[in-house]
Amino acid sequence: MILSKESQDFLENLRLYLVSSGKNESESEEIISELEDHLYEAEKSGKNVEDIVGRSPKDYMEQVASEMTFDRKGIMKYGGIIIVLAFSYLLLGDAVRGGIELSLLEALGYPLIFISFTLLTAGLFRHLASSKKNKTKEWTLIGIVGMTPILLFLGLIYLNKVIVTPSVTFSFAANVIAVIATITVFVITALWIKSLVTIMIPALLYLPEVLLGFTNYGEETQLLASTIIMFGGLFIYLLLMGRKDVNKTGAL
């Protein structure tokens, strides 16, 4: 006998709720497997998930979450890595496209955008995990949250033109150092998370452009070719990754 769909959904939602509330991962897994055990036994005697957690899954999730500690160390670690990674992507992009030029406004604005987007996403996940399913409302919210960083980036680019703040233009040597530093960041994270994803994504984003820059093709051909290689490569890479994940779960 396996757990009913409702129970599995509830446990998945609880996991999402706890993770996006910044709760310690192993503590979360512990309470989830304990509840899984309980639901399994309860279903054997004909009870359902509502008998266990009550009418409102949201209230129950809040109750569980309030008894768990906020994983400040873990959040700082992952948050820090995300900011460093995101900043590295931006810098590497600038460096290969004619050099880094960074104003004070950008140096402060980009991390702020990353942080607010992360907080917003966490809030969205908490909401999606705990609220009743309503597809239209869900997709509207996902759309709004997804659009926010784009709007903020556009706003920052505009502000950067209007307001002049002290800025640094990297010399050739500084750009080379920046490229090496960002690539080091990608390699270290790849080793740490044991996945090539942090190397593959920037490689696919920037390498075609850089390599084609050495060829004698016209600018338009270069642009077209690098775009096709970039999107094609990303598509194939993500497809392969997805398949690998399926195989992994299939093997379990």
Binding site: E34, L35, I52, V53, Y60, Q63, E67, T69
Partner: peptide, 15 residues
């Protein structure tokens, strides 16, 4: 006693 209600309580008792 609501079945699920013991778990938040057990978490606190462990803490």
């Amino acid at each position: 006693v609501k079945e699920g209600s013991i778990y938040p309580l057990l978490l606190r008792m462990k803490k």
